[in-house]
Structure formats: structure tokens, C-alpha cells
Nucleic acid binder design. Structure first.
Lengths: 163, 163
DNA sequence: CCGCCTGAGTAGGTAAATCCAACTTAGCTA
DNA sequence: TAGCTAAGTTGGATTTACCTACTCAGGCGG
């Protein structure tokens, strides 16, 4: 990982990547694992679309933001759409793609863990609710849509797992 | 974020942290958001407990590994336990705490997203199965244990959300 | 047309994190 | 007492992040 690891480079047999770096978690982290990326995504979920919104809300350096937005756009997590307010010039809006929206589960899981184990004074800062108003949590689910307790889930490497 | 952001520093009113950095996601990322951390946790879930196991499986630099293990131990995600093989000297084993085991949902969500959107050639490298053998996925669940589709979940900032 | 304003970056220098290889240390064994 | 090994530590080079200032393009007012 001396150079910036891309998904392509991890999967390229020519690079002698340690096998353990090739799993789905490592590939996801190539896209979303750099510093600031999850926070940028969080802002995108709250509705930020413009460069200056991300920069101002997060206090991130502009060159780093440029880099992260490019990585996310190339990976298909965000799209750039030309966008024009009346009487303003055209500019780009960064919006979540369907693939990006599916990262909501990852963000929600991080949020849930932080609420449970690093509680802020004053209680949680965000709630997740079903249409009927009841609280929603994140967990493992079987094909019928029923929760499976975490300690009953069996993880197994497939034949395709890098040895 | 010029110095290493700790959970304590984010919550300390004396530091003028941008408010958006104080949510549960940001606090979780102080613990698990640094480079290598998720991969170390993945190895811990697969059963690695010793310094050399993490180092050799991941190819991580030993000084970085020392730092990450210390961060995770201080945050209560791992514990150090003295451990002795017969005929060997005592050494420390790093094991997941209950709080650490709950990160399985975050890792599973990353894995699921990678399998869905950055598919490896040859199919998924890991499966998640219920005791009856059926596949398990990760998603939103109501208090009765029934799945809620992601697009029906409403996220709302509470009064405690930093403005 | 001309100068000004604004959003969206780019550039340059500094600080910090990472990487890599070599070295140290503490117990056990011979 | 010397050697072996796991678990780090240390020093120096490289990469990444940070921060400030600057550029660039389009729209607007005059």
C-alpha cells in the first residue's frame, strides 16, 4: 500500500498484493476508506451537493476535498451534474448514485456503534425511524426479512477467498 | 484535525471542533477510521490475536500496527491478555471485547457493499449464513425484528445534533 | 466593453503520517 | 552463557494532509 491502492490494482494479478488485502472489505476501503470520505458521504446524505458546502461544513482542505470527490465520482458513488441557479453560472453538483445511497447502511452502522459505545453527552444526535415512527436499528436479516442475532451468523470464506 | 483527533478532544467544548465533526459517525471514526484499522479488525474476527499474525497477514509496518493496537485497546475494542504457550514465554494476545465484536455489523456492511458494487472475479469471497444455512444480509430492522426497506427509514437530527 | 464578485478549484510550502529496514529487548532453551 | 524468537522500537526516506494564497471562469453592473 505504498502507492494509492485502487480497486483495479488490488485485483490486478501483476501486483503482488498480500492476499488478505483483496477481500470485499479491502476493496470497499479503497473507495471509502480514506480520511474524510465517510464524513463527506454523511454530508451528502444530509443534502450537501456543492464543493463549498462540503468544505465549509467539514472544514476540510480544498485539495483533499477535490481528491476525495474525484475518487468517489470515479468509483460511481457520486455523480457530477451540471447545475444552474437562475442568474448564476453553471456549476457542478455532486449527488449520490444508487450505489452511493447503499452506503447508508455502512454509515448507519458506524453511527449506531458510536451511539452505543461512545455516547455523546445528551444522548444520540440522530434518530432512525420507520414510517410508523418506531426506532430502527441495523443488523443481520434472513431471506424472509427476519432479524438474526449477530452471534448466530456464521461467516465462512468461500473457495474464492485469497489464500 | 491537525493533531490526532481523539473522542475526548472532539467532545471537549474547549476545542473549537467544527460541529459537524462531533456526531456519532465522527466519534466512531476516531477509533476505527484510521488506515489499516478495519483490516486489523477483520483479521481479529478471523481469529488473529498476536502481533506477528496481524503484521504477517496484512503486511503492515510494525510501528503502525503498534499504534493501531494501542488505539483500539484504549478505546475498549480490543483487550490485551497475557497468554502462554507451553514452553514459550508469556506474550500478549489481542482479543475483541464485546464492543469490538459489535463492529461486525460495520465490517459486514462494508463487505456487503463491496460484494454488491465492486465484485471480485469469481464471486464473493465470504458468505454469511444463518444457522439453517440460508444467506444473511444486513439492513434496517424495526423493534419487532422485521426488515424495513432502506428508502423507508427516516433519519432525523435530534435537538442534541451540533448546529 | 471593463472591472468586480463568487464558487470552485490549483499551487506551494510546512507538518504529520506512513513505510521500510535495521536494531533492541525479554524470556526460554540448549 | 550463548542463541533463538516474538514483539516491538528507532531512524531516515517518502507520501499524504494541512493551510494560505492565488487562479480561473462566468455573470453582472455600469
Amino acid at each position: 500500500m505504498t502507492e494509492k491502492a485502487t480497486v483495479e490494482s488490488l485485483l490486478d494479478p501483476a501486483t503482488d498484493t498480500p492476499p488478505a488485502l483483496m477481500c470485499s472489505i479491502a476493496r470497499s476501503l479503497c473507495v471509502v476508506g480514506e480520511r474524510w470520505t465517510f464524513l463527506i458521504l454523511r454530508e451528502a446524505f444530509w443534502g450537501s451537493t456543492r464543493f463549498s458546502e462540503f468544505r465549509d461544513r467539514l472544514g476540510i482542505a480544498p485539495d483533499v476535498l477535490t481528491d476525495r470527490l474525484a475518487t468517489l465520482t470515479e468509483a460511481g458513488v457520486l455523480t457530477r451534474e451540471p447545475y444552474q441557479e437562475p442568474g448564476r453560472r453553471v456549476r457542478d453538483a455532486y449527488r449520490l448514485t444508487p450505489a452511493g445511497r447503499q452506503l447508508q447502511i455502512v454509515l448507519g452502522a458506524l453511527q449506531q456503534w458510536g451511539d452505543d459505545h461512545l455516547p455523546p453527552p445528551g444522548g444520540p444526535t440522530v434518530t432512525r425511524r420507520a414510517p410508523d415512527g418506531r426506532p430502527v436499528h441495523i443488523g443481520f436479516i434472513d431471506p424472509d426479512g427476519h432479524e438474526i442475532p449477530a452471534d448466530e451468523v456464521e461467516f465462512a470464506r468461500t473457495a474464492n477467498y485469497p489464500s
